[in-house]
Amino acid sequence: MSKPVLQIENLCKSFTLGKRDINALSNLNLQVNAGEFVAIMGPSGSGKTTLLNVIGCIDKATSGQVLLDGIDVGSMPESQLYKIRRDKMGFVFQTFNLLPYLNARENVELPMEGKIKSKTERKKRASELLAMVGLSGRENHRPQRLSAGEQQRVAIARALANNPAIILADEPTGNLDSQNKQEIIKLLANLNLTQGTTIIMVTHDSQAANHTERMLLLKDGKIVKEKEGLHLAKKNNKCPNCGSTIQMNDETCPACKKPIFSSDELFST
């Protein structure tokens, strides 16, 4: 049984908008175990991004408790929170948010700057991470020379830089075409499978969400529904199509011969 990497209890978050108080999150409870791949879905304004921001320590809860790796981050001052963000979190944004004047490798190195002193070591790790997301040889390219999908890969590599406990992805496929969307979801799923990276992904896209192992539906600041995703079957070495046993590296199911991942068929499920 994996240990919980994130525990949220009675989380409330309210904003004041003009004279009205808006409860973005109300009494939300959530536990995510290490190595899980979770999707958070819900209509606009349901509190998805707010929840992700609170988990990512870039926004503060109004009340309730957030434990990250057992640490209560809610009571932490900003002077320590940045270390949590740097060491425990990896952010992937819808708009990639790469620094345009840095090349791919330098972008990936950014989060390591406060942590790894040796520049050579940072360089080496950044290159390894870029290779891991399939961008070998593109290290010196600046974001404007990369496609949207490639930019998001760089962003994912950057999120992995400090070997975080959780990767928080906010609509990571929102700005991508369907081809790249599949690639990125596949990349995240593979990272989860092979590296055991915990991923919490906010998405509008039900197809993308389907490829996680647990889907949460958020409405009015509460989790109203929870559902298993296709990724769970794969994690349990079962073909999501026919249920027969598969190997981790299999691209197609040996039994039903259907592609295990990134098939249009799967995405239309």
């Binding site: 870039i58 940045y82 963000r85 952010f91």
Partner: peptide, 16 residues
């Protein structure tokens, strides 16, 4: 602003 937000989200301290 957005770049600053990104830098802070990926772990840059206020002083940095």
């Amino acid at each position: 602003t957005k770049e600053i937000g990104t830098l802070k989200a990926i772990g840059f301290s206020n002083s940095t």
